[in-house]
Write a protein that binds this DNA or RNA. Structure first.
Lengths: 111, 111
DNA sequence: GCAATAGTTAAGTAAATGCTTCAGTGTTGA
DNA sequence: TCAACACTGAAGCATTTACTTAACTATTGC
């Protein structure tokens, strides 16, 4: 389910917004309530909740409500999926470059 | 310049669109012209050029024009920057979890 | 030279996004 | 019990985004 293209879509979409990345950054240092998440952001609490809902839908953040406070934490598996997508493409490219280098070295030897 | 927050912003923004990720995916297998990039995509060439310009502005793709064809290739450094941002946040979270685990194990020992 | 090719640019448009405000709901602590 | 607290949801609005079409420029091959 982590390599589901639709889920990957939601993840990259979620990471595209600076405010949401700031929220992820904050959460990478430990869990936080919605109000705590909102504190450094210059927008209404309502806006933060909307961002948070997107982050949760993308799978990047998990939340649970106890009493009246919603506690949020990062879901590292989801982060790893996004990381993995990028990593695979980069490696694919770099391997190609290596093979090209080898080829050029060989043809040079043959002269 | 790769950790410039504005550049990171452009990169994640660029990766947010499925068509652009498809283009990156294609390029990870080797260079391509604009027409080749457009071929599997169900949209006008014009739309592809607009996506490509965004990818180039983000630093993820580099292009050079020879005669009338623009050849595109991936810039692995930029991909690595995006990868790195995610990786740092994930590791930060996982280290925190580890410390928490250690703490719980210790306090258990003390009983 | 000239038609086909490869890409570029501008203008317009429909839908999506990122907010805001405001009016709620449920929870807690004194 | 009741005011403060921590959200939640809906409606509205300005901006941005992802296209389209159409008109254009610059190369190339015959």
């Amino acid at each position: 389910m982590l390599h589901d293209p639709a889920q990957l879509d939601l993840m990259f979409q979620a990471l595209a917004d600076p405010a949401r990345r700031q929220m992820v950054d904050r959460l990478s240092r430990g869990p936080a309530s919605v109000t705590q998440l909102a504190e450094p952001l210059e927008m209404s609490l309502s806006a933060v909740v909307q961002h948070l809902n997107l982050l949760e839908a993308s799978g990047l953040v998990r939340t649970q409500k106890v009493g009246r406070v919603r506690t949020c934490q990062i879901e590292p598996k989801a982060l790893r999926a996004a990381e993995h997508w990028i990593n695979e493409r980069r490696l694919s490219w770099e391997r190609r470059l290596d093979r090209l280098g080898d080829f050029l070295a060989e043809t040079k030897d043959e002269n």
